[in-house]
Simulated scan of single mutants.
Amino acid sequence: MPARKRGSLTDHLADSDSFARLADQAERLRQLQALLDAMLPIHLATAARVANLKRGKVVIHADSGAVAVKLRQLGPRLAAGLNQQGQEVSGIEVRVQPGRRISLPQQKILPKELGIRPKQSLTSLAAGLPDGSPLKAALERLLATTRE
Score class of each variant (00 low, 15 high):
109 I>F: 04
51 A>T: 01
69 V>T: 14
75 G>T: 09
80 A>G: 14
67 V>G: 03
79 A>D: 10
119 K>F: 02
86 G>E: 08
30 R>W: 12
66 A>H: 02
64 S>G: 08
121 S>V: 13
56 G>Y: 03
42 I>R: 14
113 E>K: 14
62 A>I: 01
52 N>L: 01
37 D>E: 11
82 L>T: 08
43 H>G: 04
120 Q>E: 14
35 L>F: 01
69 V>A: 14
97 Q>G: 05
55 R>I: 00
32 L>T: 03
41 P>C: 05
48 A>H: 00
98 P>A: 06
99 G>Y: 04
44 L>C: 07
36 L>P: 01
46 T>W: 00
59 V>Y: 06
40 L>Y: 05
66 A>R: 02
114 L>M: 14
59 V>D: 08
49 R>G: 00
53 L>Y: 02
30 R>D: 12
107 Q>D: 04
53 L>D: 09
91 G>D: 15
70 K>C: 02
106 Q>F: 06
96 V>D: 11
95 R>I: 10
113 E>T: 13
51 A>N: 02
121 S>C: 13
113 E>F: 11
55 R>G: 01
43 H>C: 03
77 R>T: 11
62 A>F: 02
112 K>C: 04
57 K>N: 04
104 L>V: 14
35 L>S: 11
60 I>G: 10
68 A>Q: 06
32 L>D: 02
30 R>V: 07
96 V>N: 13
84 Q>N: 14
73 Q>G: 09
68 A>W: 02
110 L>A: 14
83 N>I: 07
46 T>S: 07
65 G>W: 04
82 L>R: 11
85 Q>S: 15
42 I>V: 06
45 A>V: 04
42 I>P: 06
49 R>Y: 00
72 R>A: 07
30 R>K: 15
97 Q>M: 07
87 Q>V: 08
53 L>K: 02
48 A>G: 00
92 I>D: 10
116 I>Y: 07
